[in-house]
Design a protein around this nucleic acid. Sequence first.
DNA 1: GGCACCTTTCCTGGTT
DNA 2: AAACCAGGAAAGGTGC
Length: 246
Amino acid sequence: MSSPCLSSVLTHNLYSENCQIIPAPLSAGQCYKQISPHCWTIDNVLEWISDQVDRTNFDASMLSLALCTMDGPTLCQMNQDQMIVFFGPQLGSHLHQSLHEQKTKYGKTATITLTNMKTEKGEPRQKRPRGRPPKLTVPNYLSTAPRGTHLWEFIRDILIHPEKNQGLMKWEDRREGIFKFLKSEAVAQMWGQKKKNSSMTYEKLSRAMRYYYKREILERVDGRRLVYKFGKNSSGWKTEEIGIGI
DNA sequence: GGCACCTTTCCTGGTT
DNA sequence: AAACCAGGAAAGGTGC
């Protein structure tokens, strides 16, 4: 089966997501290969991912613009596990390796590049501001919570990555964010594995889920067993957020 | 050490 | 009867 070209997938998503147009990158025209990954713009990152997909013939059908829209510093913050979560096991591993090679190539010159590089007009680049740099803003769906992955994010990630969801859960209403546990104890075990807690049960997991009602991360679905609904304070599952055209 | 946050554990009682 | 739901109470783990 031939994999769709990432460029076409992304181009499609570019115009299907709320009709928003991505602004031109600051380093338009400058190939990412000439820059340290730490200095990549969003477009540089997209170009790099596109190249890697084209080069390896990985299936890009699961990718979306939303998942790939990040700048270089954000990309460089991701570890291998995070890449696998967002790009799948094969492509994620490959991207992590490729990024590592790219970082190694520019590792020693990254700082010099940041401080001494000139713009295309030949103007000196702005000096790095004094003091501790602010934390990078990471999109909600990419952020790693300070205390690790939250339960609702773990559930969401199972739902939006069907390749990792071996009949554990399913969407009841994708648009409304309504989903159902098919193998409740299996999901609880997986959650337990993640938290290094072998005594996790669906009973306990569901108690944690019910706490989300008050915070409006989840909404109640009355009268339906094992069925939950994402609430207004959840993110990263909506089709328009992750770029799935339905 | 104190605090906030996010669960985890246990529990009672109700519903399917 | 078993599985699940609802929610109170208390405690644990972690980061700041």
